[in-house]
């Protein structure tokens, strides 16, 4: 039996590392045709992981797991339909409008509920700048379990070729509220790195919240 290559072992360890840290990234919910995307957002109070399969460049299906760390046994599992509602392919820029709808099951301290999910996202970028705005909600028949609004803007300090190592500096404003609790908002500077099909971001908000996001598609 052949010994596995060190690069394969490393790739496996990297994937395990990423999945264990488990984070939702504010990434494209639909990627290229016949692709699988895995992405996550991780903060001390919440994590959101998702797995998407893009059937077409404009349509994907996804499964999500959302967990609120600050409350015991508070998590949600959902399925979603992700749509690229409109894309503008320009000379040197691209803009996208996405819509996501879904449904599933949530449980907060042993209280199971059927929930729905809806999200709308707009992003625009060229090779130097990037902007994204997103709003998403998880709701049951009585109230909104999670409401989250994210606005982010980024700039790259250098431009590398297609196969290069890419870096972005991103500033994110986020506002969120759980279960009719009062809204919390913060601003987080991020560093985003990507090489080929692996992307990760790490940031710390001005209120001291560390966030880690990842995306990969293949």
């Amino acid at each position: 039996m052949k010994k596995p290559k060190p690069s394969l072992i490393f790739s496996g360890l990297l994937l395990t590392f990423i999945l264990l840290l488990s984070p939702l990234s504010h990434a494209h919910p639909v990627a290229f045709q016949n692709s699988v995307g895995i992405m996550g957002y991780h903060a001390p109070f919440m994590s959101h992981n998702q797995l998407n399969y893009s059937w077409r460049y404009w349509f994907a299906t996804g499964v999500h797991h959302i967990r609120r760390h600050s409350v015991k046994n508070a998590n949600a599992t959902l399925g979603s339909l992700n749509f690229l509602l409109k894309r503008w392919n320009g000379s040197g820029l691209q803009a996208n409008l996405y819509g996501v709808i879904g449904g599933g099951h949530s449980e907060i301290s042993g209280d199971p509920k059927t929930i729905g999910m809806a999200a709308l996202q707009f992003d625009i970028e060229d090779r130097d700048y990037y902007f994204l705005a997103k709003h998403q909600q998880l709701f049951n028949d009585k109230f909104t379990e999670l409401e989250q609004t994210v606005v982010r803007a980024g700039v790259t300090p250098y431009i590398d070729p297609f196969d290069g190592f890419h870096t972005w500096i991103i500033l994110e404003w986020q506002d969120f509220a759980f279960n009719r609790e009062s809204n919390q908002s913060d601003i987080t500077p991020y560093l985003r790195f990507f090489y080929r099909n692996i992307l990760f971001e790490i940031g710390q908000s001005f209120t001291g919240v560390t966030r880690f996001n990842y995306i990969t598609h293949f």
């Binding site: 392919n89 320009g90 820029l93 691209q94 970028e125 060229d126 070729p161 297609f162 290069g164 099909n197």
Partner: peptide, 27 residues
Amino acid sequence: KGMVCAFCAQGIQKNFSKRKEVKDVKV
């Protein structure tokens, strides 16, 4: 047109590369 992000453009390389007629792709 619209190919501005290296991460997003991976799909072009991947989908061309898997065709038997294609030897190599450069973006």
